[in-house]
Nucleic acid binder design. Sequence first.
DNA 1: TGCGTGCATTCGCATATTCGTATGTGGCGG
DNA 2: CCGCCACATACGAATATGCGAATGCACGCA
Lengths: 121, 121
Amino acid sequence: MSSTTAVLDVRPLSRLFKALGDETRLRIVALLTHGELCVCHLEDALRIPQPTASRQLAVLRRAGVVECRRDGTWVYYRLARQLDAMAGSQLRTLVASFGKQRLLREDVARLQQAKGPGSCQ
Amino acid sequence: MSSTTAVLDVRPLSRLFKALGDETRLRIVALLTHGELCVCHLEDALRIPQPTASRQLAVLRRAGVVECRRDGTWVYYRLARQLDAMAGSQLRTLVASFGKQRLLREDVARLQQAKGPGSCQ
DNA sequence: TGCGTGCATTCGCATATTCGTATGTGGCGG
DNA sequence: CCGCCACATACGAATATGCGAATGCACGCA
């Protein structure tokens, strides 16, 4: 009856957008679009200091955008599967857009092979 | 050669996400998904004070998310066509998601007919 | 057990965002 | 011309967000 009741919960979506509304975080997501990366890779690729990388990754993690996996000394980040349907649609659209950026793809490939296949040693 | 050069300009996209990263603004966009509305409609539907509506609409306008048209005393807002390709994709995905929300559609329809067909008189 | 490395967190400060309140502006009617 | 209406904008206070610098923590290794 009343249109004041939340007929649509926009909170998951607004949380996603808030996390993506920062250039550094968006560049991180762009890189992760092409596969998982560890923090040192992101620092190198984006030329950002280590605490910045770590902090922005924490923001993305708290927003459910990324998740991480520890492998010995290194921590690998990847995009997380979205629980909210609309958030999932938006992130899939974003991944599709970034996937079309050839230069970005090449950047990531160069980055990964420069660091050796699959690790940071 | 250097991967520091901005291989991908994320600024238009981050501007869009920053604008959408607020619950009130996202609810406004959700309503505008179904057609243009004047400010007083938005105030009523969202139960927000007038300066809040006006301010958030200004934020959306400066971010290029919405545009407005003056009709006498009233100002009608609608979603704006996106210049940036990736921003356009995101907004289209959002519109598609919101369009599937039946309750929201009904809310808007009720709102518009309660206010009379096409104006605020 | 001590040290180095990769990553996370804390602190302090500068800047940005949000909201309520008050005020300004433009258009219409009397 | 005056007053009303819809809407926009200018404050000021509270809160949030950003970064650099420093510190903490976990893991691997000698």
